[in-house]
Design a protein around this nucleic acid. Sequence first.
DNA 1: GAGTCGTTTCGGCCCCTGCCGAACCGTGCC
DNA 2: GGCACGGTTCGGCAGGGGCCGAAACGACTC
Lengths: 260, 260
Amino acid sequence: MPDHERLPVDHRGSPLAALAALLADPTRAAFCSALLDGRAWTAGELARAAGVAPSTASEHLSRLIAGGLLSEDRQGRHRYVRLASPAVATLIEDLTVFAETGPEAAGATPGGSSAGPARRPGPAPRTLREATRQSAEARARTCYDHLAGRLGVAVAEALLDRGLVSDHAGLAVTERGHAWLAEQRIELPPRAGRPGGRPVVRSCLDWTERRSHLGGALGAALCRTALDRSWVERIGSGRALRVTPDGGRALHELLGVEVS
Amino acid sequence: MPDHERLPVDHRGSPLAALAALLADPTRAAFCSALLDGRAWTAGELARAAGVAPSTASEHLSRLIAGGLLSEDRQGRHRYVRLASPAVATLIEDLTVFAETGPEAAGATPGGSSAGPARRPGPAPRTLREATRQSAEARARTCYDHLAGRLGVAVAEALLDRGLVSDHAGLAVTERGHAWLAEQRIELPPRAGRPGGRPVVRSCLDWTERRSHLGGALGAALCRTALDRSWVERIGSGRALRVTPDGGRALHELLGVEVS
DNA sequence: GAGTCGTTTCGGCCCCTGCCGAACCGTGCC
DNA sequence: GGCACGGTTCGGCAGGGGCCGAAACGACTC
């Protein structure tokens, strides 16, 4: 089943070299780093972000997908691409940590599930400004158009706990969930879930929390609602969010969510 | 401090790409795999093992050292080279596991020996000499600085069975385990488990057995003890080990391990 | 001092690969 | 239907990097 073994390039039968070669190109590495936010990017977005021609990006993406690092999702004339699994995210994260901190520190983090210190994306903060920004983003931020960070994860888990969203063979909004949304006057776009439309609810790997939060039309609607009703507001121009006093009350009443 | 950032090659400022490029060459990858036995090899030995000219090997080694993956130790006309740190070994192990098992399995937990087809490390043996070497290594060998092969797996399971190591939310040495270590006069390095130090115990997927053995500071201490007390000794120049008669008795008495 | 051996440096070869622009294709919108 | 747009394929170009052999260097041996 794994076709990552039949790579076009000849690495003299070294799977290690073949895998490393995928990440050894600055453009492909930039793609992977960008995708570490857990979002799905289109080919064009990645091309622009990395500063290469669309044709170049297309070829790189094909190689990364063939190598099993990325998975694609073609919708209309768009090609959405994301990291293939949390394992890929872990791998890239580990390599980045090593590359930036050197052989001593890397690997000191406890493996897997044990309770390690929250790992930060990107380079370790070198300035106070950078550190506070990262801390704010870990608390609450937008991920494309939905909520992420500790807040996003907490909301996702609350929805699952209360049976508003189910996780049987894929995420879905339950009957109760639809009723709850109507009651709260939160509207999903009409074409959501229809063929060609946006998926209703999607799980999105949360980089800072190592857990998933909710994306898709539902995630977007929740985020839009939270902004519209001033439950959260943006801090500066980045992705970081602040929960307002009103928002704290609303989230607690509606979902039992406590924001730290 | 890190001069791995100033690599001669221009990777457009991507530390990730620069690091991956070091492993993206089959010859360098072969060097690193060979060095995973934790020993110091000379430049010539590595050249022969990888089947390249000494001049080629010399250049590769210089790049690996400049990149922080290897450290060197020049003695007379020999250039001994080894992995720079346990973190490097972990990194290469993780990459190899991912490259050989694909994005799903990587990052698996110790107990998670899914029922996959038994995958062999390199190519099937083509000569008798090669076959006996593989057989010896499957029985007992070093994996960087700890025990692997059937012996390593048996020791790991014995420690778990006897409650000296627990597997609740990550591997850890229990109270009884610490007492047992003290009783056996096996010492862990003082900084083990501290922030920035090496993890005390970590699981390491054993590719000959498809099960996990124990690495980390505990794995290293056990292996060092076994060698110091002549429970095991090296066979030839590879990573294969032989259990001595004394070692067989000791392992049976202390852990109930029977070596086949 | 001559010879051997492990290693390094240098020059040169060649393939591989990343890049782009141009042309092409399919989708979606007006 | 016409047009805009995102993505892909192809040809061609240029640079990088891996490989070797020859020669040089230094260490150890006799």
